Amino acid sequence: MAVFTPVSLDDLETWITQFPLGKAIAVRGISSGIENSNFFLTTERGEYVLTLFEKLSFEQLPFYLNLMRHLAERGVLVPAPVANGRGEILHSLHGKPASIVTRLQGSSQMNPQPVHCAAVGAMLARMHLAAEDFPMQQPNLRGLAWWHETVPVVLPYIPDEAKALLRAEIHTQEAFAASHVYHQLPRGPIHADLFRNNVMFDGERLTGFFDFYFAGCDTWLFDVAVTVNDWCIDLDSGRLDPARLRAMLASYHAVRPFTEAEKAGWRTMLQAAALRFWLSRLYDFYLPREAEMLTPHDPTHFERILRERINHPAPALF
């Protein structure tokens, strides 16, 4: 959502005519995030979000866009891709893959309370179940294989104590991924990045999940762990907040009960979720790309969360 590729109204004047949206009236860059160029787009027909994809390819993108369409058609609150007159939802602008999706109402809840966490937990479970019959397959591109590629790249930049933690956690996750418990975990398409700023609320009413461009097929438990590690913590310390944690997990469990394998793998999966974002933030911090309005996230936040999950394991699942 940083802007790597600027887009103006002049750029859109002819391009927008392929859609049933009328003329483009305004386009404004969105400054948060670091992967794609995103814009709020106002047309004669309403409010939308325009995305130019800076890293994902034309071959990879049908998975994400069709997953969003699949979920929207099943009543999950997500942005719906807008098709052009030929029924296509993947387009090209400035030589890059592009999409237009409907804009969700409301705003991100950056100070969540248990009621917000409960709503997110229930919708996440519904999303997992709704995607069970999604026919396309794509791995989580920020999973174990990517961790192996990225660790040697970031190790030279970090202090010895952090190096030791990173190496030890990679060994832990390798062993977990090879275990019987791991291979029993239910899996399917996941969001994989369901942070507070990727969910919209109108008051206490959840209005939608968005930014599916890290989605892939992985364990549902990993998706839950990623979400818990952002929504249910004290941001300064990384400690889990018991009330928010209970609210989210109970609401998820009420829609899709956790399995025995998920209960056994829960604490290690929370570490995996922390490791994934520590690694990506280390990479973005030490090897940044140029972009308008780009501010890399602080990697020490997820290092702190990982240490907290190791030193103070989370309560057991239901």
Rank of each mutant, 00 (worst) to 15 (best):
E13F: 03
T14D: 07
T17P: 00
Q18Y: 00
G22C: 05
K23V: 00
A24I: 00
A26S: 13
R28F: 08
R28D: 12
N36E: 07
F40R: 07
T42Y: 04
R45Q: 15
E47R: 13
E47D: 14
E47I: 05
Y48E: 01
V49Y: 01
T51R: 04
L52F: 02
F53E: 03
E54A: 11
K55T: 15
L56S: 14
L56Q: 15
L56F: 09
L56Y: 11
S57E: 05
F58Y: 11
E59W: 06
Q60T: 13
L61E: 02
F63T: 05
Y64N: 13
L65N: 08
L65Q: 10
L65M: 11
N66M: 08
N66D: 12
M68Q: 15
M68E: 10
H70P: 03
H70T: 06
L71S: 04
A72S: 14
E73V: 09
V76P: 10
L77S: 15
L77V: 11
L77C: 13
P79M: 04
A80C: 12
A80W: 08
P81R: 00
V82P: 02
N84V: 02
G87C: 07
E88K: 08
E88Q: 12
I89T: 09
L90Y: 03
L90S: 04
H91Q: 08
S92Y: 06
L93Y: 03
H94A: 11
G95T: 05
G95R: 03
K96I: 03
P97F: 05
A98T: 03
I100G: 00
I100L: 01
R103F: 03
R103D: 02
Q105F: 12
G106R: 12
S107T: 14
Q109P: 07
P112C: 05
P112Y: 07
Q113E: 15
H116P: 03
H116C: 07
C117A: 13
A119V: 09
V120R: 08
A122E: 14
M123E: 15
M123W: 10
M123F: 06
L124C: 04
A125C: 08
A125D: 07
A131G: 11
E132D: 14
E132M: 12
